[in-house]
C-alpha cells in the first residue's frame, strides 16, 4: 500500500459521499455546503494528479466565488426545506434509471482504457502543471479561446444584470 493510493481512496470516498449528500439533502443549504466540501476533496484529487494550479483555482473560484453566489441566492429567496418531495413520475424514474445505466456503461468502457500515468522525466516533473507552463500555453497556443472566454464572461455579467434586475 503506498501513500498515494491511500490518499486517493480517502479523497475519492469523501468526494462521492459529499456528492451523494448534494443530491439527497432535503434543504438547499445543506446541498450547497455538501457541494463546497465536494469541491475541496476534488481539489485534493487534482493535487494527486499533479494539477496543483487547477486545484488552487478550483478552491478559489468554485468553493469561493461560485458557492458564495449560490448561498447568496438561496438566502435571498429564503428557501426552506422542500415541503413535498417530487412525485415519482414516469420520467423521473426513467431519468434515475438511465443515470444508473450510464454509470454501468461508462464503468465497463473506462475500465478497458489502457491507462498508466506517463513517466515524466525530471525536466517535465519540474514544469508539469505549474502556473508558468499553463500560462505560456494559454497566452500563445490558446490565445483565441482565452479571449473568447473573456468575452463570454462579459456577456454573462451583462446578461445576469439584465435578467435579474426587475426594472432597468
Amino acid at each position: 500500500m503506498n501513500v498515494e493510493l491511500v490518499l486517493f481512496g480517502a479523497f475519492a470516498l469523501l468526494t462521492l459521499l459529499s456528492a451523494g449528500l448534494v443530491i439527497l439533502a432535503r434543504s438547499p443549504i445543506n446541498s450547497a455546503m455538501a457541494l463546497v466540501s465536494t469541491f475541496f476533496f476534488l481539489a485534493g484529487i487534482y493535487v494527486l494528479l499533479w494539477a496543483h494550479t487547477v486545484a488552487v483555482v478550483q478552491v478559489l473560484v468554485y468553493a469561493g466565488a461560485i458557492m458564495v453566489l449560490f448561498l447568496f441566492v438561496i438566502m435571498l429567496l429564503n428557501l426552506g426545506e422542500s415541503a413535498h418531495r417530487g412525485k415519482p413520475t414516469l420520467s423521473r424514474i426513467l431519468g434515475g434509471a438511465s443515470a444508473v445505466g450510464l454509470l454501468g456503461v461508462l464503468g465497463i468502457t473506462l475500465s478497458r482504457v489502457p491507462a498508466q500515468p506517463a513517466n515524466l522525466g525530471p525536466q517535465a516533473q519540474a514544469t508539469f502543471g505549474t502556473m508558468a507552463s499553463i500560462g505560456q500555453s494559454i497566452f500563445t497556443q490558446w490565445l483565441l479561446p482565452f479571449e473568447a472566454v473573456s468575452l463570454l464572461l462579459l456577456v454573462a455579467m451583462v446578461g445576469a444584470v439584465v435578467v435579474a434586475k426587475s426594472r432597468i
Partner: peptide
C-alpha cells in the same frame, strides 16, 4: 452520473 441523477430527479 450522480450529477445526472440529481438533474433528472430533483425538483428544486
Amino acid at each position: 452520473c450522480m450529477g445526472m441523477f440529481g438533474v433528472l430527479v430533483r425538483t428544486n
